Computed example of a mutant assay.
Amino acid sequence: MAEEKLLTVNVVTPDGSVYDEKTPMAVFKTTVGELGILPEHIPLLASLEIDEVRVKVPGTEDKFDEIAVNGGFVEFSNNIATVVANSAERKENIDLARAERARKRAQERLEKARQEQNIDKQRRAEISLRRALNRLNISKH
């Protein structure tokens, strides 16, 4: 049986490395759509949405590691996919109660900004809400 080809996925934030594993496939949600990367993919650079990065666990049919990423970008070259994000959390490290509190605060800020008709505050609250919902969705998979 041929050995499975693998690529490396690194997820880093200003606080350090969040994820560093080898995989046969990784899936990223970019600003222009979903992108799957296999070993020996052509080099690329893409902006990421607030969403999850899914990394296939080697030797399994359908098991994936899931990482909540709050934007950033992915760069792929030399069989290494490096995600640089302001913040990221592995599924198993997400504090569900904290994420729920963040969602509630963001919804309250969004409602207040809408009442004040403050577009800047509204945009920031919407981003905070998307981040909280992303963490909640991933933690519940």
Rank of each mutant, 00 (worst) to 15 (best):
F73D: 00
R105A: 10
Q107I: 14
I37G: 02
A97F: 08
E21A: 11
R131Q: 15
V53I: 08
I138N: 03
S17K: 07
V74D: 00
S17D: 00
D15L: 14
R105L: 08
T13I: 09
V69D: 01
A85I: 02
E3D: 03
E116K: 11
V83N: 01
P39H: 09
L129P: 03
G59S: 03
E4M: 15
A85Y: 03
D15W: 11
V84N: 01
E116P: 02
D62E: 13
Q117M: 12
L6T: 11
S139E: 03
K29M: 11
A2Q: 15
T30Q: 03
R131P: 02
S77R: 13
S87M: 05
E111L: 08
A106K: 07
R135E: 13
K112W: 00
E40G: 07
G71K: 02
I127K: 12
E49D: 14
F76S: 02
R131E: 13
V55C: 03
R103G: 04
H41M: 07
N79Y: 06
A132K: 09
V32C: 07
K112E: 15
K112A: 13
R123D: 00
K56S: 08
T31A: 11
N118S: 10
V57I: 15
E126V: 11
R98Y: 00
L110I: 11
P43H: 07
T31L: 04
N118D: 14
E92C: 03
E111S: 15
L133D: 06
E89P: 00
R130E: 12
V32P: 02
Q117H: 07
S77N: 10
L44E: 00
E75H: 06
S17I: 11
L110C: 06
A88F: 07
N70R: 04
D51W: 05
E89N: 10
E100F: 13
D15V: 09
E21M: 10
A125N: 12
R54N: 09
N79D: 15
Y19W: 08
N86C: 00
S139N: 13
P14E: 09
I67H: 02
V18A: 00
A68R: 10
S87N: 14
D95P: 07
L136Q: 12
E21R: 13
R105T: 12
E52W: 07
L110H: 10
A97I: 05
E40F: 10
V74K: 00
Q107A: 12
I80F: 04
Q107E: 14
I127Y: 09
T60C: 05
K29S: 11
R114I: 14
R130P: 03
D62W: 14
E108N: 10
N93T: 07
D15A: 15
H141F: 10
K112L: 15
H141S: 09
T23C: 01
V69C: 06
L96T: 12
S139G: 12
D15E: 13
I127V: 15
A125K: 06
E52M: 09
D65F: 06
N79W: 02
A81T: 05
P43V: 03
T82I: 08
N137D: 13
V55N: 01
V11F: 01
N118C: 08
